[in-house]
């Protein structure tokens, strides 16, 4: 059985302007020790999906569906019991390390809090655990830094502290919500490598939210591509990368900057993500889809397995032959690029 099984998850927010369907029917599984990447533009519902699992949404929110963690449905769990999962068995790292740490508490205190909230550890025990974790995330001279405050750390160092805090209770699942977005490129690489190593050492499963396909290719076992609150395509990483079945995935791959072709133009997906208050009819991507057909405007495509691969799902009306042809072409373009 998978560590986390999410089935038909929906999250709706009531706002003054109407109901925002931030997540609209998402299902996926995360296996022990594996990494699932959730990819999509900002506002596609990837962060909300994870916040819903953690029960961290604020505002007037309505949730339905299941999120079975080790057999327990987190959605139905009372707040008090859910708290025992948070920080202990499921941890989360957020996008902006600059604001995710409390500025008036020392790093040591915030790390210790994560321990003592779940175990009856003494201050000294919690302290040595905190120190151990700071070393594990390779903070230089860790022993001298426990009493320092967040503003005395750089962005990358703060994200390391966040990772240390998330892993301090050796969780089964780590949710990382765009952990490197706010960091510069070299730091990004370091943080990702660190997360990979820690995953190996601690054996945690990871849900990595990102819009960087490059990162996905390097780290993920499975991929979920979301568009406008719905899954567009999902499956094993290799399947999605080598046989992409959805025009949105093609768009994402095409818009990757070509490292070799200096001065070449970027190929962004035209248009902007739709409003979730009032999403387009039919396939939500049809407005921006260069392959859109008449049926796409009216009928919503079901999420269907690709022929011969029951784990590779895509929601698109295009004919299988067209998908095959386009996928081959894109993959060969990318290959030529990297070659």
């Amino acid at each position: 059985m998978a560590l986390l099984e999410v089935r038909d998850l929906t999250t709706h927010f009531s706002t003054d302007d109407g109901v925002v369907r931030a997540v609209d029917g998402v299902s996926f599984e995360v296996e022990k020790g594996k990494t699932l990447a959730i990819v999509g533009e900002s506002g596609s519902g990837k962060s909300v999906t994870c916040l819903t699992i953690m029960g961290l949404n604020t505002g007037k929110v309505q949730t339905s569906g299941e999120a079975l963690f080790d057999g327990t449905d987190l959605i139905l769990l009372p707040k008090r019991e859910l708290r025992e999962y948070r920080g202990k068995r499921i941890s989360m790292i957020f996008q902006d390390p600059m604001t995710s740490l409390n500025p008036v508490h020392s790093i040591g205190r915030q790390l210790r809090e994560a321990v003592t909230l779940h175990e009856g550890a003494t201050k000294a025990q919690a302290n040595s655990r905190a120190l151990e974790m700071l070393r594990a995330v390779r903070i230089p001279r860790a022993e001298t830094r426990l009493d320092d405050y967040p503003h005395q750390f750089s962005g990358g160092m703060r994200q390391r502290v966040m990772i240390a805090m998330a892993l301090i209770n050796n969780p089964d699942l780590l949710i990382a919500d765009e952990p490197t977005t706010a960091l510069d490129v070299t730091t990004q690489a370091q943080i990702l490598r660190l997360m990979n190593e820690l995953q190996r050492d601690f054996g945690s499963a990871i849900i990595l939210i990102t819009h960087d396909l490059g990162v996905v290719a390097e780290t993920a076992d499975d991929v979920l591509v979301m568009y406008a609150a719905k899954p567009a395509e999902q499956g094993a990483c290799d399947d999605v990368f080598y046989r992409p079945h959805h025009p949105y995935t093609w768009g994402l791959m095409r818009s990757l900057p070509h490292l070799t072709a200096v001065g070449a133009e970027l190929n962004p997906i035209p248009g902007t993500p739709p409003s979730l208050l009032n999403p387009p009819s039919g396939c939500r991507f049809h407005v921006r889809c260069p392959y859109a057909m008449e049926i796409c405007r009216t009928v919503e495509p079901p999420l269907e397995p690709a022929p011969g691969d029951s784990h590779h799902l895509a929601a698109c009306h295009l004919e299988e032959a067209v998908k095959q042809r386009e996928a081959e072409q894109i993959v060969s373009e990318m290959m030529a690029d990297t070659a």
Binding site: M54, L56, T58, R80, R83, E84, Y85, R86, G87, K88, S91, M92, F94, D96, T99, S100, L101, N102, P103, E113, A114, L117, H118, M162, M165
Partner: peptide
């Protein structure tokens, strides 16, 4: 209440 570090505290499992 809208600060990120408050969310962090909740994510840690604080009441």
């Amino acid at each position: 209440l809208n600060e990120d570090y408050v969310r962090t505290a909740r994510a840690k499992g604080a009441s």
